[in-house]
Design a protein around this nucleic acid. Structure first.
Lengths: 339, 339
DNA sequence: CTGTTAGCGCCTTCAA
DNA sequence: TTGAAGGCGCTAACAG
């Protein structure tokens, strides 16, 4: 339990000087700084985070708010965030929020975050306006990853474009009845990724003069099981569907399983396109629109640190996206669907 | 920025009483407690974690040390840990450590953890004896998940048995030359899961009177790409191999891809069994030995909390494991391999 | 059951 | 460039 006092004595200086020397502040002579660092090292001294937070008002901790930690996109964003922030001396505190289908999730409580973190990263968590306002009122840097409300720093894809790209790929292959598996139907926010992707899907269909109808859109809960069951529901409603755009690869892979469950061949009977670039998509030759969540997490962290340093960050950083054409999407069978 | 003082004034009591009332300590009249809680609520008061940690010596934070956050097993353990601890009022601080093939990873530094966390969870991170000793010297409750050194509380599978079970399944199907894809070759610790699984694999072969040889064992780095490339290496070395046990499903799925890359049919030319129970294994009909990492994380958290409460925890909690037979493992082709 | 009084360990003026 | 001193906001004895 060596404290700053012991280091000060060992180095023959005051605690104030130890504090300055160890934190790299100016106005410490090189000789003194080196001596202090040597003694601190020798004694195994590390400042108590609580004490230094209390005194300085800074925690060197970032809060990461997210609905899931074990889904592909989220796990990779978190990985990027953690490694980036840790390498720069920041801790990452995880806060998960259930956004399961039924019950409304726990609300984001700004009071808990107030003196616990220096900055906040909201990863793929749709918030209502009050929640956003209350977080912003904390007056900590705030960065959204995946999607975010207008007026706040956000690192994201162009979801509309991504949804349109996936859909256009199917249209180009000759599909005329294209369904869509979206994520959790979110009623609290107007800016979650599945909303933009669905908009892109609808836009692409409309531009091509094809049918756009609610009967073609089902919810897949953003997971494998959801994708699997939703495809059955979709096919029940619309037996004429020949292709599907899923809002995530996990749902797309679930859709492949669901198609098989009812004896449909992919892509023979049903073409499927996902969005993400999941490593395991190759197992079923999944055609997808790939993104890089690790990089988004890393960059969002850097942006947050810039803001912590008083700099202004660009409001929106849009990430590139790339079509990876494999085998889960092909031309429709001739004679299938309406002529 | 309402502090305890304001709540005390509003409720007409001292700060000590506010502190007691809000933390549910005894010796506060019901009426007083309610009044305090009401005022705290009204004023949006939440105690400053730094201040209360500094004063009490407790942080209500658990450090989670892990090599990866985006691999299946780890992501699910973390999920279980986070949700369990959060629901009980504890924060989770993430610490990742690269254990990539080449360079030695950053060492675990106990000094950093000392006054930052109340307890430590080591998830699937093999440590050398010095690191274990230095963590133990912190005198915080310490729980290992996945595997751990003798003498410390560990939540895990019976890896030997699991490896043997997977291998026995292939032997029962008639295979005589069975290869193994293990995880990162770890030279710092003697107790990581792949080590136990490999031991089980060797034991099962030996018990059946079959060949056990280093040429049959390759490293797959515990990820999809590693599994994919290692299977090619294995087949190059041992063209007579007809089946493989992989130490994780991710490597097993990679192995499926690798087999396909060289035109081998699974299970026609090569049977593959994994260990984990990954949701996406079904995409390729992966036969596997399933475990439940979410539950392991949740239970390890509870154990840690018990220890924090002064209770003694059982040294080892072993989790059940279950063979999920699908289609990636079948009988060898007649005439294939040595008679 | 409640209030008073010291710190917890560090950072940050301010003065030297 | 350095030191002295006063908090940061809360908890933990101890009294009452």
């Amino acid at each position: 339990m060596t404290g700053i006092e012991e280091v000060a004595q060992a180095a023959g200086v005051s605690t104030a000087t130890v504090s300055r020397a160890l934190r790299g502040l100016p106005n410490v002579s090189t000789a003194t700084r080196e001596r202090v660092m040597r003694e601190a090292e020798r004694l195994g001294y590390v400042a108590s985070p609580s004490a230094s937070s209390l005194a300085s008002g800074r925690t060197r901790t970032v809060g990461l708010l997210t609905p899931w930690v074990n889904r592909w996109f989220f796990a990779n964003v978190i990985d990027g965030v953690e490694r980036t922030l840790r390498s720069l001396g920041y801790d990452v505190l995880l806060y998960t929020f259930d956004v399961a289908g039924g019950a409304p999730r726990r609300r984001v409580d700004p009071a808990v975050l107030r003196r616990r973190v220096d900055g906040i990263l909201v990863v793929g968590l749709p918030l209502d306006d009050d929640e956003v306002a209350s977080l912003a009122a904390l007056d900590h840097p705030l960065v959204f990853v995946g999607s975010g409300p207008a007026g706040h720093v956000t690192v994201r894809l162009d979801d509309d474009e991504t949804g349109a790209l996936a859909t256009q790929h199917l249209i180009d292959l000759g599909h005329r009845v294209v369904g869509h598996i979206t994520g959790v139907p979110d009623r609290v926010s107007s800016w979650s990724p599945p909303i933009g992707r669905e908009a892109g899907y609808r836009m692409a269909l409309a531009d091509a003069g094809l049918e756009v109808d609610d009967s073609l859109v089902v919810n897949g809960d953003f997971d494998v099981e959801g994708g699997r069951s939703s495809v059955k529901e979709l096919v029940r409603r619309r037996p004429d569907v020949t292709a599907i755009v899923a809002s995530s690869d996990e749902m797309a892979m679930g859709a492949v399983l669901g198609a098989r469950d009812q004896g449909w061949d992919v892509p023979g009977d049903l073409s499927i396109v996902g969005i993400d670039g999941h490593e395991l998509g190759e197992l079923v030759g999944l055609t997808t629109i790939a993104q890089d969540p690790y990089q988004q997490g890393a960059d969002a962290s850097l942006l947050l640190l810039d803001m912590l340093g008083g700099q202004r960050a660009p409001e929106v950083v849009t990430y590139p996206t790339e079509l990876v054409a494999r085998t889960s999407a092909g031309p429709p069978r001739p004679g299938e669907g309406p002529a």
